[in-house]
Nucleic acid binder design. Structure first.
Lengths: 189, 189
DNA sequence: ATAGCTTTGTGACATTTGTCAAATGAATTC
DNA sequence: GAATTCATTTGACAAATGTCACAAAGCTAT
């Protein structure tokens, strides 16, 4: 069962969550699968789920003047979701599958209800938000302090799988430069 | 007593925190006061406190090639602290007073210990991190999507007091442009 | 294999922004 | 209030990046 993978991941990331709790949690989760191109979360809509990505890859983006500008990518063994969805608010971003992918799906309300009553889950939720905030701070640092070339190199170092799975157009938008500029950065080295 | 102001603020922001809990919390807090220019939190150091700003203003910045680049500003009735300090890790940023200021000071470990044991406090901590994450997402959106002129106008709209209290040099670095460019943006309108 | 589509790369040029230097303006000290 | 310091503005130029046009390379389906 794919849930095993998810369970192992939680246990390694949140060793303080007890097994009994974890089982309650897992029982509320479902395995789901969607084809490439599916919009998991659509801009402007409320979305009731968060996901753990078992297999595949996704991108998150806003639309700007009809073009997509990527905010993040996710690959195997990563969490996929948005703060807005967690808060029950309409999403500002769209999350779309880059290839056929499998997920463990978690209902946000269920998650919050568990966190409401149980201290360990509340800490888990804090932890998740904290990790996301750390990611955002790093992104912000890079956008404010690093040149586009440095950002490209940092991305390659941190997540080399991006190059395999994501188009250069999407990577360029993620880095905050035009396709052409990224192309030139790449040809320089 | 200045703690009253802090108490009122918490009650309006987190109506679900009970009075008894709040009193425990407040009893762990201290009122402190520092002169303009004080570095509340210094880059590279661990820092044991978070603050509620009673009166005054602060800026947060990194150093880049000897120049400061601002990450955020805070004014009356706002929380002042860093995620890194919360996590007990060395700070990457420096937090400095823009004028003589007064704070309610909270020990991070005490805060976390309370959150450890008490559900209401755990939710409060989640909520605080969540608000910070929302701020970061908005910042990121602005840096990636908006022109420097639009960012300047957004800042004026959201926090007009910035113009009163913060130098244009610091505002420029916050917006991600040079002093000269900000000056030209301002003269355009 | 070919035709058609999508992605990526390259050149020419315009625009934005940064950098350096100097001038102006505002605030502070003696 | 004159002198000094600091912050802001302005001008001239250079560097980085965006935009547009098109060429080249990779894929897909027939």
């Amino acid at each position: 069962m794919e849930k095993t993978k998810f369970k192992a991941w939680i246990k390694s990331h949140f060793p303080r969550v007890e097994d009994s709790m974890l089982d309650v949690f897992i029982n509320h989760a479902q395995w789901v699968q969607y084809p490439k191109g599916t919009q998991l979360i659509a801009e402007g809509n409320r979305h009731p789920y968060s996901y753990f990505l078992i297999k595949g890859s996704v991108k998150s983006f806003y639309l700007k003047d009809g073009k997509s500008v990527c905010l993040w990518f996710a690959f195997e063994n990563e969490l996929v979701g948005t703060l807005k969805a967690m808060e029950g608010a309409p999403s500002r971003e769209t999350v779309e599958l880059l290839e056929d992918s499998e997920f463990i799906r978690l209902n946000n309300e269920t998650l919050l209800r568990l966190a409401e009553k149980d201290l360990a889950f509340s800490h888990l939720v804090s932890q998740l938000i904290l990790e996301h905030a750390d990611f955002l701070e790093e992104r912000l640092y890079q956008l404010q302090f690093m040149t586009s070339k440095e950002r490209y190199e940092a991305l390659l170092k941190l997540a080399p799988e991006v190059l395999q799975k994501v188009s250069l157009t999407d990577i360029a938008s993620y880095l905050g430069v035009s396709r052409e500029t990224l192309s030139r950065i790449r040809s320089q080295k």
